[in-house]
Amino acid sequence: MTTDHNTNFDPYEFYAALVAHKLIIPVGVPGAFGRSAIFEDILERFNALVSAHSADDDAQMMTFPPVISRQLLEKTGYLDSFPHLCGTVFSFNGDERQARELSRRVGEKEDWSNTQSMGELVLNPAACYPVYPTFTGILPVKGRTVTMLHWVFRNEPSNEPTRMQSFRVREFVRAGTEAQVSSWRDMWLERSLGIFAKLGLPAHSDIATDPFFGRAGKLMADSQRKNELKFEINVPVISKTAPTACCSFNCHQDHFSTPFGIKTHNGDVASTACVGLGLERIVMALLKTHGLDPTGWPATVRKHLWP
């Protein structure tokens, strides 16, 4: 059976429908909308389902705020690869006279950006970043696994609903030997496809690349693709032909282990990998596939989310 909600793929109509059904709340800036209680319930239920599937993984839970140390970001090389996505925290540090000047400019709708100066924090661009410094040193024989649920920021203003500037990722990170992390990454890809199948989502996995900046980025993406370092699970949400990436499965080789001094139990440079599940996108994939009212979703889907 096909119904209108999963055959029409206009992104702006989908955005309007999410607003009309009181699932998201526009705030006047693209990609920063609010989420309603219904939307949040689906998101939390999905997150709980992921937790249930990974309950035996011995993953340590960590929670960091949505800002990270600027030095940490500089150390990861993020600004070499993704200068266009970064958000940096600037704040006022002036005296009273400068405060009055700031106030005057705001009141008269003038540019006040140069009254602020760069601080020690940046918005966290990837859920796993604050975890790597905690791995510094020698890993246990079985390696380490950490899980987080973090808000992340990407400077990508867009009026299509799946491209957000601020969103949540349920993330798992593994550090260990190359064999440990790559088999773990592959296990998560299969596991996630299984979860998506239970939820009746038309999901497919594919080799993917990160959105590296500029011409340098094209070279880096080519290298990443050839080494099969990144996979994504895609579900049609705003386009049938260009489905939306809802999860990613990434091998980092020594990208984080070298700068953060992460060693395997026998002293070699370790490998790391991460798995990120884009929670808002998965909620939208469910709403697109099964309809905008979750009480009407198939019982076979609902039983996994509301057991």
């Binding site: 090389g77 070499d80 011409r215 340098a216 070279l219 880096m220 290298s223």
Partner: peptide
């Protein structure tokens, strides 16, 4: 990868 950009 980054050095190859500078080479390019």
């Amino acid at each position: 990868s980054h050095a190859s950009i500078n080479v390019m």
